[in-house]
């Protein structure tokens, strides 16, 4: 489908408004957090460096601004569903930032957000399509119950996968920006290939790219603000629900492979859902050379970072660049998957 002037204006505004909100408001918000004493130590730097946290509320606000812009143009209920998802998950994350939530309570609450999306589809058909489109082959049949179960499970899985990648300066913001760029390509190709598809899904997808890319400016090494669980969970939930309402689940899953592999290796090595702060041993440690080393402690979880550091110690910036290089490669495979799904 060829975009008209209204489509272009909607997509441009849905990108520009969240990015502008982030870039203009973040410095003042960071000062506000410092004035309120909301800071935490940056454990990978010497000299007691403290960084304001959490940036999650501003990330939520930025995403909401973008979805409101998409809604204003397309008048679809889907951006409203996305707003409720971001607000709910962000508040769960904010409670976790301020008070802490258990390793089982948090996934249960996040599954409740997934349940809300499934119920929204039940009440208003068209929020998402209960069909999976696969590369090279075709789509599955329509399976309302099976798909609803996938939606309920996807929010805690994705949100926690993002949360587990939130350990180093610029890691989560760079990761989200790269995978959301692949997601935008997927929804653009789907809109191009499927006759009658609204470009509204593109306008709904770009706020995540705009928010994460502009947040990377503040979160990259050396970080001027941390996102907190409210930020990482919001990113993860928004990403997976966008992939579902956009009908590009398989391509989105491929971009997410580094996060999925990381989560799977952590869960299999610690044998269950354990909150990061309560793990018996850390996967890495800061050496006297100010570089990060892989821990040799048998109790330490097997993480993506620990696996990378088995090649030798790295400083934080080089380590995050490697993680983002692996993510960019997965995003490239995601684009290949999108081409195989929609153009071949």
């Amino acid at each position: 489908m060829v975009p008209g002037p209204t489509d272009v204006a909607a997509i441009a505004l849905a990108f520009i408004l969240p990015a502008a909100a982030m870039l203009l408001l973040m410095p003042g918000y960071a000062r506000f957090l410092v004035a309120r004493g909301r800071t935490t130590g940056d454990s990978h730097k010497p000299g007691g460096v403290v960084v304001p946290t959490p940036a999650g509320p501003l990330i939520m606000a930025s995403l909401v601004v973008g979805e409101v812009a998409a809604w204003a143009f397309f008048r679809s209920p889907v951006p409203l569903v996305l707003i409720v998802v971001v607000a709910s998950v962000g508040l769960i994350g904010l409670y976790d930032d301020l008070r802490g939530l258990g390793g089982v309570v948090k996934p249960a609450l996040l599954a409740g957000v997934g349940l809300f999306v499934a119920v929204a589809e039940h009440l208003h058909r068209g929020v998402y399509s209960p069909v999976l489109y696969f590369p090279l082959f075709t789509e599955t049949g329509t399976h309302y119950i099976i798909f609803a179960l996938i939606v309920v499970a996807s929010v805690p899985v994705s949100a926690n996968a993002f949360n587990m990648l939130d350990a180093f300066n610029g890691e989560i913001s760079g990761f989200t920006a790269i995978v959301s760029a692949a997601l935008v390509v997927a929804v653009v190709l789907r809109a191009y290939a499927l006759p009658g598809t609204s470009l509204g899904t593109v306008a709904m997808a770009v706020p995540l790219l705009a928010t994460s890319a502009s947040f990377y400016y503040f979160n990259r090494y050396p970080s001027r603000i941390f996102d907190g669980d409210s930020g990482s969970l919001s990113f993860g939930a928004m990403y997976v629900i966008l992939s579902i309402v956009g009908g590009v689940e398989i391509a989105a899953l491929v971009a997410l492979i580094p996060a999925v592999v990381n989560s799977y290796y952590i869960l299999s090595s610690v044998r269950g859902l354990v909150e990061r702060k309560r793990m018996a041993a850390r996967p890495t440690f800061l050496g006297d050379d100010m570089k990060l080393h892989a821990s040799s402690d048998a109790k330490a979880p097997t993480t993506l970072v620990r696996m990378i550091l088995l090649g030798g110690p790295l400083d934080e910036r080089a380590l995050v660049n490697r993680i983002l290089a692996i993510t960019a490669y997965a995003a490239f495979l995601s684009v290949v998957t999108s081409v195989m799904t929609w153009l071949l």
């Binding site: 696996m307 990378i308 030798g312 490697r322 692996i326």
Partner: peptide, 8 residues
């Protein structure tokens, strides 16, 4: 380090 990156 390059080998671990390629392996990942």
């Amino acid at each position: 380090n390059k080998e671990t990156l390629l392996a990942m």
